[in-house]
Amino acid sequence: MVRAFIGIDLPASIREEIAAVQPALRAVPADISLVNPAIIHITLRFIGEVTEEEIGRIRAALQTIRFSPFPVSIGPVTLNSRSRPRVIWCGVEDQGRCAALHQEIEAVLSPLGYEPEARAFTPHATVGRIRRSHPSLEGVVDTLGRDGFGSFEVGEFTLKQSMLTARGPIYTDLCVVTL
């Protein structure tokens, strides 16, 4: 079995900018698991555990998607919720293009038996996960990357394998789809 998802890789320059703010998050007396900056990405669709045979069908379905390249801007660091924060992330500004691509992906996966995700799709790049918050976290987050972390042109997305380890996930590209 393979644990898989579909995502957009961020350019190294943007990941480095995000990495530069992570020390401020480490200094907060909260229990936060920060994402390794080398693997920060925008998730378009989490698939979960699938067989090698299913990976082949998913790969073939994704290759049928026709979508034009589009610009995105990676916004400042924020919390997924102010009242009960669980994720620290950077929002994505893209005129709805990630959501439209997400819908295309859902449309080609549905005939393979993958039900569309129930929750609303919100494009973001996860910076960390909060196990236990602290009152100072919101104030620190509000100071990080206020101008955002840059823009880039999305020209591809990737089907990835995610192998969970004690040191964090290890991602392997299974298929790259060029837009």
Results as ranks from 00 to 15, higher is better:
residue 49 E to R: 06
residue 119 R to M: 13
residue 152 F to G: 08
residue 37 P to C: 04
residue 34 L to C: 12
residue 65 I to L: 05
residue 31 D to C: 03
residue 64 T to A: 13
residue 51 T to R: 12
residue 124 H to Q: 09
residue 15 R to D: 06
residue 74 I to Q: 04
residue 84 R to P: 00
residue 108 V to E: 02
residue 69 P to N: 08
residue 67 F to S: 03
residue 34 L to Q: 08
residue 146 R to P: 02
residue 20 A to K: 04
residue 111 P to N: 06
residue 19 A to F: 00
residue 13 S to I: 04
residue 133 S to C: 07
residue 112 L to G: 02
residue 145 G to N: 09
residue 27 A to F: 01
residue 120 A to N: 14
residue 32 I to A: 05
residue 70 F to C: 15
residue 19 A to E: 09
residue 21 V to H: 01
residue 40 I to Y: 12
residue 36 N to E: 07
residue 124 H to W: 02
residue 152 F to H: 00
residue 48 G to D: 11
residue 86 R to D: 01
residue 104 E to S: 11
residue 87 V to M: 05
residue 132 R to D: 00
residue 13 S to N: 09
residue 61 A to H: 05
residue 42 I to F: 06
residue 85 P to Y: 13
residue 60 A to R: 08
residue 54 E to R: 10
residue 31 D to V: 09
residue 37 P to H: 12
residue 98 C to V: 06
residue 135 P to C: 02
residue 90 C to V: 09
residue 44 L to V: 06
residue 112 L to Q: 02
residue 42 I to K: 14
residue 136 S to E: 15
residue 102 H to F: 09
residue 44 L to C: 03
residue 43 T to F: 04
residue 13 S to G: 05
residue 13 S to L: 05
residue 77 V to S: 11
residue 118 A to I: 04
residue 100 A to C: 06
residue 104 E to T: 00
residue 148 G to W: 03
residue 25 L to G: 11
residue 79 L to P: 03
residue 71 P to T: 02
residue 65 I to F: 09
residue 90 C to D: 15
residue 57 R to H: 07
residue 29 P to E: 07
residue 144 L to A: 13
residue 135 P to G: 12
residue 36 N to S: 15
residue 89 W to V: 00
residue 144 L to S: 13
residue 141 V to K: 14
residue 38 A to P: 05
residue 18 I to G: 12
residue 111 P to D: 04
residue 126 T to I: 01
residue 78 T to V: 13
residue 17 E to Y: 00
residue 73 S to Q: 07
residue 16 E to K: 13
residue 100 A to M: 10
residue 121 F to M: 10
residue 23 P to G: 08
residue 121 F to E: 12
residue 88 I to Q: 04
residue 137 L to H: 10
residue 44 L to Y: 03
residue 138 E to A: 08
residue 52 E to Q: 14
residue 51 T to L: 00
residue 30 A to L: 07
residue 144 L to W: 05
residue 128 G to F: 07
residue 93 E to N: 13
residue 45 R to E: 03
residue 65 I to Y: 01
residue 46 F to S: 06
residue 36 N to W: 00
residue 20 A to D: 02
residue 128 G to R: 03
residue 43 T to W: 02
residue 113 G to A: 13
residue 79 L to K: 06
residue 127 V to M: 09
residue 30 A to R: 14
residue 56 G to R: 06
residue 33 S to E: 03
residue 96 G to N: 07
residue 130 I to S: 02
residue 142 D to L: 02
residue 12 A to C: 05
residue 129 R to H: 02
residue 92 V to W: 05
residue 70 F to V: 04
residue 94 D to Q: 12
residue 123 P to M: 07
residue 101 L to K: 12
residue 96 G to F: 07
residue 40 I to P: 13
residue 86 R to H: 09
residue 123 P to I: 01
residue 20 A to W: 03
residue 61 A to T: 12
residue 36 N to M: 00
residue 96 G to M: 11
residue 41 H to I: 04
residue 25 L to Q: 08
residue 126 T to R: 07
residue 124 H to S: 09
residue 73 S to T: 15
residue 62 L to A: 13
residue 104 E to Q: 11
residue 137 L to K: 15
residue 40 I to S: 11
residue 143 T to E: 03
residue 30 A to E: 14
residue 76 P to M: 10
residue 75 G to V: 00
residue 35 V to D: 08
residue 44 L to P: 04
residue 108 V to P: 11
residue 74 I to V: 14
residue 126 T to Q: 12
residue 49 E to W: 06
residue 100 A to K: 15
residue 132 R to Q: 00
residue 84 R to W: 02
residue 119 R to I: 10
residue 87 V to T: 15
residue 146 R to G: 10
residue 57 R to A: 11
residue 123 P to S: 10
